[in-house]
Structure formats: C-alpha cells, structure tokens
Design a protein around this nucleic acid. Structure first.
Lengths: 232, 232
DNA sequence: AATATAAGGTGTAAGACTTACACTAAGCGA
DNA sequence: TCGCTTAGTGTAAGTCTTACACCTTATATT
C-alpha cells in the first residue's frame, strides 16, 4: 500500500432495509427524497458515513434518526460498489438490514431534511426505488428468507410475548407461502427454544391463544450445535 | 444526501482470501508486506480500489496480479469499516473470498511492489496477520463451511475430473473433520449433480478410482429447488 | 507366480425428521 | 344456546441420516 494514505473524503454511504411486521404483512421503511438526484422518489433510508464514524454505527444512526430506536437487530447485508450506481459520482454503499417490532408507539419521521417523509410500505408491491435500491431490497429479502430457516430471527419482528399463530404468520409473510399449522407448531416446539407462558392472549373475540416467549438461553445451545457443522 | 457530492478520494480497499487445495490440505494465499504499516508482516492480498473501478473488478484485479488467473469463483464476503482497523487512517475494506484449482502451472508472484513475496499457507496454522486480516480470514472460513453444506463450491477447488475420495478430502479439509466414506458417496451421488466418466485415475500404485465431473446443468435444477424454500 | 499393500467400492438396519392430512375444543358475541 | 372464529392436537408414510465392516482391484515386491 502507498504511504502516506490519501485523504479520506468519504463517499460511502449506508443504506438500510428496515423490516417490520404488522397485521400479517411484512413491510419496510421507505423515505421520500427531498434532494436530487431522484428528488421526490422513494428510496431506502441511508446516510453518508461520517469521517470518524464506524460503518455499523452509521447504520444504527440511520435507524435511530428515523425511528428513535436503538439496539435493534441489524446485520450487514452486502456492499454495492458499481461505478454507475449513483448518477452524480462514485458512491459505495454498505447495505444493512434490520428487523424491528412494530408498535403504535413508534413514530417514524425524517430527522434530517434529505427526506420529506418516511413511511412503512408492504414488501409485496413496492414502488420503484431510487438508485439500485430495488436490488438491495431483493437481496435483503432473499437473505432473511434463508436466515429464517435456521436462525430465529422471526422473533425480532414480534412483541416479546406472542402466539404460535403470530409466529407462523411471520414465517408465512417472509417465505411468501402458507405453512401447515400442525407441522409448524410441532417443529417450533421441538426446537426447544420457546418458553410457554401461563398467560393467554387478551382482547380477542374468540378463543384466546397461549402466549410464548423466545428463550435466548436455550437457543444459544441449539445454535451452538448448528455451528459445529455436525451435518454431513 | 448532500449535493454536490464530496470529491471521491477513495480509501477503500479490497482484501482477498484466496483458497486453494493441495495434497489434502486447504491453503490460502498470503503476501509478505514490503511497505509500512506492518512492513515485513504477512497479510491477505489486497489493493486500493481505483477511482474508476468497480469493487468486484478490484477484487479480480487483486487475484489476477498475484496469480495470473481470471474467471475464478469469487464472492464478496463482508465489509470491514471499524475506525481503528488501519493504524494510519480511515480505510474501509471489502473482503472477498475465492476458490481456485491449484496446479503446478500456477506461479504466484507479487506484481506490484507493496508485497515482497506471495505464497500458499495451510489454514491450519496461519501466522499472525496484519490489520484485522485474521478476523477476515476466520469469517471467510466460516462462510465456506456453511456454504459447502448446500452449494457445490467444493468443485471449484478440484481439477475438472476428480475422484470421490478427492472430493471427500476437500469437504474434510474445509469442515475439519472426518466423514464416513459410504455415507458421503451415497449422498453426493444422490444429489445427482455428478457425472460419472468412463475414465479412471492414472499413475497411482493401487486400484484406480473412477473419475467424475461436476454437472452444472443438473446442479442448476437441484439448486433451483433449494432457492424456492420448499422446506418448512 | 505368489503375496503384500493400499485404496476403491459397496448395503443395511435403526432412528430422526418431514410431509400430508381433518377434526374437536374453547371462548366470545348476538 | 347457537353460531362464529381461531386454538389446539396425532398418525402414518416416506425420506434422510447415521453407524458400521468387508470384499475387490490394481500395482509393486519377492
């Protein structure tokens, strides 16, 4: 490598695919741009990475400025660095995905003025997105589809206490297909990572379902086994 | 985002974990640095990304300059962007991993003079590496361990024609454990992605094994099924 | 030619997991 | 109490995984 290092005048950004789940529907958070290029278009929320800022931190900041939330499940997805991905210059972006528990308490509003509005939109019929954001979204959906099959990320989208049907709905929304109820329940309970609570759903006008919690301790054991590559 | 864009004075790099397989041993390509920081230390091969260069291209260039090889299996691994990962400034690096068929014809030699030497080193007892390269290596090994379990990347490390035992050796080297011969062969043949050749191994002083080829066409079908998330 | 050596190549039984499938139970509201 | 809506449950068939040991074949050696 050369010495000394060229000056760092970052044109890196982070972009976040922020998933939420509400009334059986999987959604992501979009913003409406207030600045060229792609002014007035929809886009994934994103920020430039500050000179003195780690990239993970920049992703967390993106999320925080829109939702006020911290300590959210978030993972790096992929880095997009094609020459032509930004019409005005060279911008390399590191994409992240996050899963959050939606609740009416979360109010989304753009904190900086590069975005006019921020809103949840179902993944099923996304509008056209600015830049290569449609590609980024697709890659993130593929990622969580794969991931949900062997890691319990579905819990991140649900409240702390949830019913098995709600959990199944998350799986169905992410995988985009119906699952068999009996098989689903059998399998989930078999994993041994759910704790059945002495508590029922409330406020429903039909038989109330039992509530469950995700048991991180038990999960750690199961996951440990996964990691040891026991399968041939 | 701000307009106009700040000037792009890249301090991005790519770093490559280049895997090869030789005599039953999994190896990666290391270089010995010829420049500070970490002069004389071992490191993963890497380059700065040019202003007018896509990041995938930069990774291919890294590989080409060391080995003279192109069109090699290569995937992006992860992007490392901690503030303190480079002692002399802010350098964000996009890591790639590659799998290559080693053969005596491949002669590795550093093409630029940031590296003194380049050489294959078994992954089992790597020396200390510069920067966060040990971390990058670990992550790449984890990645191919996971990947080998459901995608036939093992073939990329073998010559076009190979025996089942050689294939098993690749799996064993990557997973770092012994596999059962009968079960392994049964499973591989069951996938239906191998083509048995009318040809035997030559030049061995014992019973010659049947040679096989990887059948990309058949694989495409099997893999298609995987992607459709049929599993519950 | 006989023998030793080294890897190639094969089958089966037990257990675990996956899949497909349909009815009764409980709680609420009218 | 009746009707509606969702909760909750079992089984049999098929597939996949695992554990395990011996004969076969080619070459090299005497």
């Amino acid at each position: 490598m050369q010495t000394p290092l060229p000056k760092f005048d970052s044109v890196f950004s982070v972009d976040c695919v922020i998933f939420g789940f509400e009334e059986g529907v999987l959604k992501i958070l979009l913003i409406e741009r207030n600045e060229p290029p792609f002014k007035d278009c929809y886009a994934l929320p994103g920020l430039f990475v500050g000179h003195d800022e780690g990239i993970d931190y920049a992703a967390e900041r993106t999320l925080y400025e829109l939702t006020g939330l911290r300590d959210i499940y978030m993972e790096q997805l992929y880095t997009f660095g094609d020459l032509d991905r930004h019409p005005e210059g060279r911008v390399i972006t590191v994409a992240y995905y996050a899963l959050i528990r939606l609740s009416s308490k979360i109010e989304v509003r753009p904190h900086s003025n590069y975005a006019k509005t921020a809103f949840w939109h179902p993944v099923a019929d996304l509008p056209q997105l600015a830049f290569d954001h449609t590609l980024i979204f697709q890659k993130s959906l593929e990622k969580i589809r794969r991931k949900i099959s062997d890691q319990p990320i579905a819990f991140e989208l649900l409240p702390e206490k949830f019913t098995l049907t709600q959990l199944q709905n998350v799986y169905e929304a992410i995988l985009n297909r119906k699952l068999d109820k009996r098989n689903f329940r059998k399998k989930m309970l078999n994993y041994g990572i759910l704790k059945e609570l002495d508590e029922k759903q409330r406020g429903v006008s039909y038989r109330a379902a039992t509530l469950y919690k995700f048991d991180r301790r038990k999960y750690a054991k199961v996951f440990q086994k996964e990691l040891s590559f026991i399968k041939e």
